[in-house]
């Protein structure tokens, strides 16, 4: 696992935006072989979306041949509700980029058969050959997607009851009316995320500091579902300074040092590629 530390959320967004852009461009996606990208909602990824939009408007990135899968959606909230994740994704990202609507996949929380919807979602991800890169964020309790504390680390896409913490945190989007916050969501599972070839997680702000520490400095634990990332062969966490507040100084220093080494390794690999050596998947770990 790599941990990248940047000064503030904007710098984090720029780093991840550039990173994803490079991955998509290097992939050289085509209609037959699209780049499959997993996407989150919430406030943490907004700077990343802003930067990606800027790259698209500048012409250095296109989503014409990108297929997206979103992590989750509330159950029972109409798609055009102002707080639905359909609305969020359209407002913050999809309306500003060039992605064809048919290549956008978001779980339908208004489906009659919710279990069927979840199973079809997993099947559709498989149809595209799995997710190339899953971008994620975390909650204050360390949840990734709506995989709240105690979720099985081998869970797949399914119906999930929201933790009370999450309901409280989301009440601000529903006029502070706790009764109006949906109680259930459809979400990809921890295993769905772990199945993707690469996982990139954005963690910003001091309120997420404890979750970050639990996820990377302690063992794999279903009470902090992000910690399952420790089992993933190619994971990247990008954080701001505030989010490192609960980490050991030693941890921070270690990850800062390996970022430098990583750059050297990447330069070396680029040189190898030019000589015609096939690139390997994975990080330097």
């Amino acid at each position: 696992m790599r941990l990248i530390i940047r000064d503030d959320p904007t710098a984090v967004g720029e780093y991840i935006g550039n990173y994803i852009a490079k991955r998509i461009n290097d992939f050289k996606p085509t209609p037959e072989k699209p780049f499959v990208l997993g996407l989150p909602t919430g406030s943490s990824p907004i700077p990343t979306y802003k930067h990606l939009i800027k790259l698209v408007k500048e012409g250095s990135l296109s989503f014409k041949h990108v297929v997206t899968f979103n992590m989750d959606e509330y159950v029972g909230l109409p798609k055009d509700h102002s707080e639905s994740y359909h609305t969020f994704m359209f407002r913050e990202f999809f309306s500003h980029i060039d992605i064809p609507p048919l290549q956008v996949n978001i779980l339908d929380g208004t489906a009659k058969d919710l279990i069927g919807e979840c199973n079809a979602y997993e099947a559709r991800i498989k149809e595209f050959g799995g997710i190339e890169l899953f971008l994620g964020g975390i909650g204050e309790d360390g949840h990734i997607a709506f995989n709240e504390p105690g979720s099985s680390l081998s869970s797949r896409t399914r119906i999930k009851t929201l933790a009370y913490d999450t309901i409280l945190a989301n009440a601000r989007f529903f006029n502070n009316d706790i009764a109006a916050v949906p109680r259930m969501a459809l979400t990809v599972g921890v295993a769905t995320v772990l199945d993707s070839r690469e996982v990139v997680v954005v963690v910003t702000g001091q309120r997420k500091a404890l979750a970050l520490s639990k996820a990377i400095e302690e063992g794999v634990n279903h009470l902090w579902t992000l910690s399952a990332l420790q089992m993933h062969p190619w994971a990247l966490i990008v954080v701001d300074e505030d989010a490192t507040a609960e980490l050991h100084v030693k941890t921070v220093k270690y990850f800062k040092s390996i970022e430098r080494v990583q750059e050297e390794v990447e330069a070396m690999h680029a040189a190898l590629r030019e000589q015609g050596v096939e690139e390997q998947v994975g990080s330097m770990e």
């Binding site: 798609k79 055009d80 359909h86 359209f90 309306s95 064809p100 609507p101 048919l102 956008v104």
Partner: peptide, 13 residues
């Protein structure tokens, strides 16, 4: 147009 509906229901942009 309702852009949201055009995108998610008509699947057009």
């Amino acid at each position: 147009l309702d852009a949201h509906r055009t995108f998610f229901l008509r699947k057009e942009r």
